[in-house]
Design a protein around this nucleic acid. Structure first.
Lengths: 346, 346
DNA sequence: ATCCTTTGCTTAAACGATTAAGCTGACTAT
DNA sequence: ATAGTCAGCTTAATCGTTTAAGCAAAGGAT
């Protein structure tokens, strides 16, 4: 019933040769290893007959390579990361690698844990969407000479390979788009975070306002804590709208922020785009479903994912050279939520 | 620089003992193996000093266990599965397991591929959301005595462990809810599929209509191909609405169908729920964002995921006993999209 | 003094594969 | 005849752990 899996030894026994020969043949090294052609044929036949499947674990132990990539993301249940994960999975498979995904929840401790678990599991390398305060972990990987590629977020102070969206430019484009379309009191809701990508998004927003001749209003920029999105998003929106100079447009720095914010706008019966125009980062079916399709900054997810994998695979094969640092542009997908402003109200 | 990882041998050398002793101590078997308490302390100290991290691959080879679970789903970028994946990941971790996720795209060949790859990687067991035409694969796993638990979908003709939503009852509840709220011409859009869970959803819908005294109209049930959702969903909706007896309510048998359908309803300027009431399977933020929040059948994702993991872990630890077959109820979350029907139009 | 137990350690095989090195016999060249 | 070459195989070490079996010395009982 439970027929034991067949190993090299079984084949060797059946063929009346040593395991070495079998290994040579099945790895296509008959030429270099001077294996007789008759016995090679016989071995191959037996392997098929016994339905031989090499034991990956044994291979890994011997070779020191597991053909496995660790993918660290914030949360697999967030559509942005789920999409990334899917691309990475497919691309890795195409290169003969398997992916192990771990969710860090934007939390440095969990991220460290994950890294350790996966290092012990001997993954060959990592693709990492870094969490807050994880610079030291990245530094450590560098020192340990563990191959990795940072995805979507990077640390300007640490020399690493990375593949990222140009967050500054994306935010700049988003804000600029709103200005062009006639909006003048443009708010932004972002995370309270020291992460470079978030800083860049904020900087892009601010620079666009400045270049558009709009004075930067400190009160128009709201930073809320990742851990309290729901409550703080409401407070932020209230503060942005329940004032004598309410915003007429709002940029969400993140998909998660947008979801929460849009739901609350609904609750408050604020109309998009008449009361508030919207531009958001991230992308998801949800934006298509909103009564007024949401303008968003479409990050090149496919390219990001594919490039990070091929970069990592290259690092794993060839010896490390110069770090590759790739910045990609997000595409502004303009929809009704940011359409040119109608008649000035008053 | 690239300090080699420390192994048992290194510790043994440093402590002047054999690797066996080190292994005993670090695995907490000092008692059974009569290790001296002094040397035990010394070994532990050295292990910490050298930052010893056991090599999981070697452990796996020796033990035949990789502490890894294979999770086969349709598509990680689908929110339903992404959520499942997250739960499974967390629950597995809590039990000392790592998860490898594979997306089958509802395709039997890909599913078979995935299974083989993961079997070669020596995963200890599987959690599987079965794809169309994959009954034979499940049968094979059974014969090979590879532990697995089916998740959310199962085959009534094959005796296996499974954890699933009661799809029949969920659909019945959904349709019944619409009837109760005054709708009389209730359509359904489902997948053209032989999968049991889809058949059950359809059967639930039909039985509810029957029990509600509504004649089942063949034309009100549309089955569309998984591979052509976008086009066929439009056609289906047109056929359901552009007729002299148009539907007044619609059930989507799936999250993906709902997304496509709702977008098209928008396009057609059909109002929810005044023109068409909606009830959908699946759940996602998207449903909250719709101008009229969508009534949905909330599957107990957390419980499904957790239960499947603990079931599998139990199978892996203890010897196989009776197969566990668990059916859970979906909760109907009633929102505005299915609110009691207003004034009869004519 | 002798035997038995117990304690504290080592030895070595095993998991399944890879691969450098060595062995044997046949053939070639001189 | 004799050395050298080469084809065709085997041997055995190795990757890092685990663990059954065994060995040696010390202590206890008679």
């Amino acid at each position: 019933m439970s027929t034991k899996k067949t190993s090299l030894k079984d084949i060797a026994q059946e063929a009346g040769v040593s395991t070495a020969l079998v290994s040579y043949v099945l790895n296509g090294k008959e030429k270099e290893s001077r294996v007789g052609s008759e016995i090679a044929i016989k071995i191959r036949a037996i392997a098929i007959a016994l339905n031989y499947q090499p034991n990956h674990v044994a291979k890994s132990l011997r070779s020191g390579k597991t053909q496995t990539i660790g993918l660290i993301i914030a949360d697999i249940s967030n559509p942005f990361f789920a999409n990334i994960a899917r691309i990475v999975e497919d691309e890795a498979k195409r290169n003969g690698y398997t992916v192990i995904i771990g969710s860090s929840d934007e939390n440095a401790d969990k991220s460290r844990d994950l890294l350790n678990v996966l290092i012990n599991r001997q993954v060959d390398g990592f693709i990492i969407v870094s969490a807050e305060d994880s610079a030291e972990q990245v530094q450590l990987l560098k020192e340990k000479n563990i191959p990795f590629v940072l995805l979507d977020r990077y640390f300007p102070d640490i020399q690493t390979d990375f593949v990222s969206t140009d967050h500054y430019r994306a935010a700049y484009d988003g804000a600029n788009h709103l200005i062009t379309n006639g909006y003048r009191r443009i708010g932004m809701i972002a995370y309270k975070s020291a992460m470079f990508h978030m800083q860049e998004r904020i900087r892009g927003y601010q620079d666009a306002l400045k270049d558009g001749g709009l004075p930067f209003q400190k009160g128009y920029l709201k930073k809320i804590r990742f851990t309290h999105i729901e409550q703080e998003a409401k407070v932020a929106i209230d503060e942005l709208t329940k004032t004598d100079k309410p915003i007429d447009a709002l940029i969400f720095a993140t998909y998660g922020l947008a979801i929460n914010g849009l739901i609350y706008l609904n609750e408050r019966k604020l109309n998009v785009p008449d009361d508030v125009a919207i531009v958001s980062f991230g992308q998801a079916e949800a934006f298509d479903l909103y009564y007024c399709p949401i303008t968003y900054l479409k990050q090149p997810i496919d390219l990001l994912g594919q490039t990070s994998v091929s970069l990592l695979v290259k690092k794993l094969k060839e010896s490390p050279e110069e770090p590759a640092q790739i910045l990609m542009n997000a595409e502004l997908v303009a929809r009704n939520s940011s359409k040119p402003k109608c008649i000035p109200q008053h």
